[in-house]
Amino acid sequence: MKREDIEAVVIQKLAKAAPGTDPGSLDRDEAYRDALDLDSMDFLRFVDALHEALGVDVPEAHYPKILTIRACTAYLEAVLAKR
């Protein structure tokens, strides 16, 4: 899967977790939880949606690695590349 495709999934799932927002307009290095006002439940939904879409189950210990769109995309790309 190409990086831009993974990023598109990330943005799509963020938009679903935060209805009415435009994650695509965020700086890719911006902390999206604050920017989109995602609480713990929203974030869990987002991680769950990534799992559903890409089959990647991000462990809790790795949450700090996915807190920007760029970092999240890179993390998912690395995990998918190992398959």
Binding site: S40, L44, P59
Partner: peptide
């Protein structure tokens, strides 16, 4: 909580709340 969540899929994780 971490020990419980580690063994679970994201769907079944529990938040501190």
């Amino acid at each position: 909580l971490s020990a419980r969540n580690e063994a679970r899929s994201v769907t079944d994780r529990v938040l501190p709340g």
